[in-house]
Design a protein around this nucleic acid. Structure first.
Lengths: 326, 326
DNA sequence: GTGAAAGCGCTAACAA
DNA sequence: TTGTTAGCGCTTTCAC
């Protein structure tokens, strides 16, 4: 900047004025043109770091998910990024790996980096980290998992009702023995989905068929999937409480020849691409794009200083065979 | 920092020394302890922006993919992020949406943000943007797609050989009429995979059965998939040139009852979770984790000033029915 | 072992 | 319309 000022025999502030687009009428057109010209010739790129330091905002936000390679979070992140791009923000994506310590450590690092805001999927015991973020006056929006006792915005769906409804539909179609497979993570959405399943089964008088298989995430995953396999194969239908457990289960099942034909599969989150054969697969759809957009809008409002804290629940849709075929 | 210095009646430089861990023997233990204590009490977070400005490195890198919601790129990004985390870097993820202008614009923004390096999946016509990055002396590693005429590191696989081999295997098993479905993007990996398919068909004397369906990405996708559907259904096997075209095709096929049982499906990239039923599904596996790790290692070496430019080709594996079952 | 002072590249109030 | 100046929060050399 100094360089281009010297070259044109003008001062740095004039150059700054032009380059940051605040020259409306304050700088003559002639000078303006010369500055722009010189900047292009020298392939000059403004140092945003210095600008951020000076003006006190980095135009950086962060999205902390448990694992970006999880399809649901990957899609959510994509939509947040596109919204952020339009508003002039870049996004740092972080994986917490479901780990409280990692979450906390990364949150501290982000605060150090002076991010303007954070959209986070809380880890199971992450209340303290969330509170720390709020204490540091960094705008925060939580998404997907509601965190009790933390006064941050929340965006998500009604997991209980969605599960209950979908399982009830299965029951009323004649699938009686329905078991559930869920990850062994103590997080609200999975717990809610389990409650929904249980209540649906009870309401249909099928309480003796309630069977919930908890799958540990990580090393033990394959074993945990294999152990109850015979029981699972013997049911009328299987309710997978999330995309991740479904895909992992399918990898295992593929080794024993796939899902039995008469069996119905219900899953939380879009599994349409998995409908390759005769298997009756259905799913509960969350409006990911809307959730992402809302999360970003809320964050932006918070950054701008507007906003009060709230909870935003989006509707889900049960996609059954019929919906799939039309 | 000033605050904590004042509170302890010492100078800012001493505080800085302690907090940045450069106090080895230069600061007394007593003072050190007091500083650390005070920092904790005041919930002090170092301003990395200022540090970056001063020392001239941001500890930020960026990964530019076409679309983070694409499973292959999501996984690649995950592994890069974990590698970066270990090395003390945070990563800005960007979607180019296969668009040269967006890529260029984002690259400029990243340079402004003073990122220490960029790992990029080039867009079809992105040579100029890549050259610009190199001219600005920002370390650059390209991945997945080789970009002719740009002297940047490249990490990827041998798409031609992998396709040729997998298609040949299918042919030798008796699947004769094999068609290929690919996205209508003019990018090296897809072109190479097509060449591999064609050469395999020719080598087996099946040139009259060569049929390549180009699917446009975006709005027209569903239509492009629907139009050749009857022809595709009539083949012995379908070779999908990428994960994305496969999943999109499956969404469409699910509406007409799924893949015919006698038909075999071959796909580039891991589709194991899709093996839900009787369909014979196979795939070509890229070692994503290794590719990601290598990309980051190369970038880090470049950042550290070591490194010469090179191409790194990783081996693929054909996963057939047998491998799937063991 | 500790402090004073300069400066990273930029912006913004104020002066000219 | 343009220039001068101070300072964002940190690191680092050099003197004490």
């Amino acid at each position: 900047m100094q360089d281009i000022a010297r070259r044109l025999n003008i001062s740095r502030s004039t150059v700054s004025l032009v380059l940051s687009g605040k020259s409306d009428g304050r700088v003559s057109e002639a000078v303006k043109k010369k500055v722009l010209q010189a900047a292009k010739e020298m392939d000059y790129h403004l140092n945003e770091l210095a600008r951020s330091l000076r003006v006190g905002s980095s135009n950086l936000i962060s999205v902390i998910v448990t694992d970006i390679s999880n399809e649901f979070f990957a899609q959510m992140t994509f939509h947040i990024q596109e919204a952020a791009k339009k508003a002039g923000y870049l996004v740092l994506t972080i994986n917490s790996n479901e780990n409280d310590q990692e979450f906390e450590q990364m949150a501290r690092l982000l605060i150090s980096k002076q991010v303007d805001g954070i959209i986070a999927v809380p880890t199971p015991g992450g209340q303290d980290s969330l509170r720390m973020i709020i204490d540091q006056k960094v705008p925060l929006v939580t998404v997907d998992r509601f965190c009790e006792g933390v006064s941050a915005d929340y965006v998500g769906v009604d997991n209980y009702e969605a599960s209950k409804k979908a399982v009830s539909e299965l029951l009323s179609e004649g699938f009686k023995k329905i078991c559930m497979m869920r990850l062994d993570l103590n997080i609200p959405p999975l717990n809610e989905r389990e409650r929904g399943y249980i209540d649906a089964m009870k309401a249909a008088g099928q309480q003796e068929h309630i069977a919930i298989h908890r799958i540990r995430f990580g090393e033990e995953m394959e074993r945990d999937l294999l152990v109850p396999l015979d029981d699972v194969m013997a049911t009328d239908a299987v309710f997978f409480s999330s995309h991740r457990v479904f895909t992992e289960a399918m990898k295992v099942v593929s080794k024993v020849g796939g899902v039995p034909q008469r069996q119905c599969v219900l899953c939380f989150d879009d599994v349409r691409p998995y409908v390759t054969g005769a298997t009756d697969i259905r799913y509960i759809e969350q409006p990911i794009a809307e959730i992402a957009q809302k999360s970003f809008d809320l964050l932006l409002a918070k950054i701008k200083g507007e906003a009060g804290t709230g909870r935003y629940i989006f509707p889900t849709r049960s996609i059954d065979r019929q919906s799939l075929l039309k």
